[in-house]
């Protein structure tokens, strides 16, 4: 009991620290891609204290609740975004048989929790009583609800290949070969998952909900101060959860040469995947909503279906 509490506190604090430093990493990587320096002056080597300064600033800022907003939902929104995104880390195995919640069906649980952030975003967009926030939230629901289908189909492939629905079982099944290295099926499902994860995590080119020219900013226009910071943290936590999930089910999670402990391997793989996401994000421009949905229903969905069938044949023929 005590051990479980300590473990969960550790995982939570490590996850939150990484989330804070992801904002710094994103600004640094974006600056590199645009021949800039990025945060530099807060903290001696390359502004490494910048996340701390940002958090301090956002805490000190005024916390405004619009008069016409639905107070309960308005205050619940940020919490509903952050909590499910962080809860997902409970299911990620950080060592052989070691996870905060080691469950036989941890994979579906993780996905269900990851989808729950949608509720928080919609609550925020609806309760703000602002037309832009509402439109942005509606767009997000349309986009994420459609991209969920090819994403789950793509994630079925590791489950089918390993014959297990627990994340630990999926990692253990990759002792011989990572699922990302399975010919054709592995790469295809990884690609499908990455595209869908971009849409799920609201990252460009599929970050339709924050089209500044049409929607001012996003569902969080009316939020300020610490509540805005929570949304921001929730978005990054969600992206980190998706990267960690990809590292777990496609790149062998905590498996790696023994000179580093398992959780360090998991962390390294997740950060490398996050930099890949940033690379895509800062290379491509935002697509239109109809283009995004057409890509989903006419390309990703059929390809994902065929891919699951191929994986089933592959697993049955082994």
């Amino acid at each position: 009991m005590i051990a479980a509490l300590i473990l969960s506190a550790l995982v939570l604090s490590v996850a939150m620290t990484i989330v804070a430093y992801m904002t710094w990493l994103e600004r640094k990587v974006a600056a590199r891609f645009q021949n800039r320096i990025g945060p530099y002056h807060v903290g001696a080597p390359h502004g490494w204290l910048q996340p701390l300064a940002d958090i301090m600033k956002l805490i000190v800022k005024e916390d405004i609740t619009p008069r016409a907003a639905d107070r309960v939902l308005f205050n619940l929104g940020p919490v509903l975004v952050v909590v499910p995104a962080l809860l997902g880390f409970a299911f990620i195995p950080i060592g052989p048989g070691l996870a905060v919640a080691n469950h036989a069906y941890s994979f579906p649980f993780f996905l269900a929790l990851a989808s729950l952030t949608l509720l928080g975003v919609f609550a925020a967009g609806w309760s703000s009583n602002n037309k832009y926030a509402l439109l942005s939230a509606l767009r997000l629901v349309a986009l994420v609800a459609s991209y969920e289908i090819p994403m789950i189909l793509a994630l079925l492939v590791p489950a089918v290949l390993s014959g297990s629905l627990s994340l630990s079982g999926i990692v253990e099944a990759q002792r011989g070969l990572w699922f990302a290295a399975t010919p054709v099926i592995g790469q295809l499902s990884l690609l499908l998952f990455l595209v869908c994860a971009l849409a799920e995590g609201n990252k460009s080119p599929l970050d339709l909900l924050e089209a500044e020219s049409e929607l001012v900013a996003a569902y969080n226009v009316e939020y300020s101060g610490i509540k805005f910071a929570l949304f921001y943290a929730g978005e990054y936590a969600h992206t980190l959860a998706m990267c960690t999930l990809a590292a777990t089910v496609f790149f062998g999670g905590y498996l790696g040469p023994a000179f580093l402990p398992g959780f360090v391997w998991l962390l390294l793989k997740s950060v490398v995947l996050f930099v890949g996401v940033l690379w895509i994000r800062w290379s491509l421009m935002r697509v239109r909503i109809d283009q995004a949905l057409r890509l989903n229903w006419l390309v990703l969905f059929p390809v994902a279906l065929v891919n699951v069938f191929l994986a089933a044949f592959w697993a049955a023929g082994r």
């Binding site: 590199r32 021949n35 800039r36 290379s283 491509l284």
Partner: peptide, 27 residues
């Protein structure tokens, strides 16, 4: 779909080339 895929690769190549250029920012 293949045009989107190739365009994506091209765009990512451009950003990668820029990532190794010298920064133009002056402190």
């Amino acid at each position: 779909a293949s045009a989107i895929f190739l365009g994506t690769l091209k765009a990512m190549g451009t950003t990668l080339r820029n990532a190794f250029r010298r920064s133009t920012t002056l402190r």
